[in-house]
Amino acid sequence: MAERGESSEAVMLKKTEEEKLRKGKMIVGDESKAGYEEEGKKVKLVTSDGVTMEVEISIVKEMEIIQTFIGATDTDDSFIFPISNVSSHILNQIIELVKGEYDQELAKKLSHDELKEILVAANYLNMKTLFHFIATAIANVIQNKSVEFVRDFFGIVNDFTEEEEAELRKTNAWAFEGVDED
């Protein structure tokens, strides 16, 4: 896994160096914190498209799946965690959202596909705050929208029979007034 990402890693590392430099000025002491919890420290993650990215520990801490892994194994700095369900594009988006302190304004700039992929990633990485944030963003998109819009949004195939659907629409008739146009 690690070998696959070597080439792009160089670029990432360059960025990281610059950030370290900026961070270095800000950090005053706090040496009591041992190991990977150290402020400004990076953890290497390799994404589904084979990119190795160094991600700040503060962000990785929100990824409970990796925390479990760190807890379970004796790791050092060189360890690279594979996150095979998340692309580098989506991981970058996630980093932006976490750094932006989960501002719903940022979510408005995301495409429907990005919203869905971030939801899947948040679920997989077990990032609770991100998951609730993105669930709210998706809820904002599907509010007051038609059933057809939501099927299309999630790529869901209707598994009701015609009779079942008609019956459900009848019982919930009050909920079908004044729906937005798709």
Binding site: L119, I142, N158, D159, A175
Partner: peptide, 30 residues
Amino acid sequence: EFQGLPEGCIAVILSRTTPVDACRLSVVSK
């Protein structure tokens, strides 16, 4: 992957909409 999302995830999204949305969107799928 998305189709594979557990019911609980969909419930979280729906709980952030409104009652009228939840009633309407119960028609989306089983």
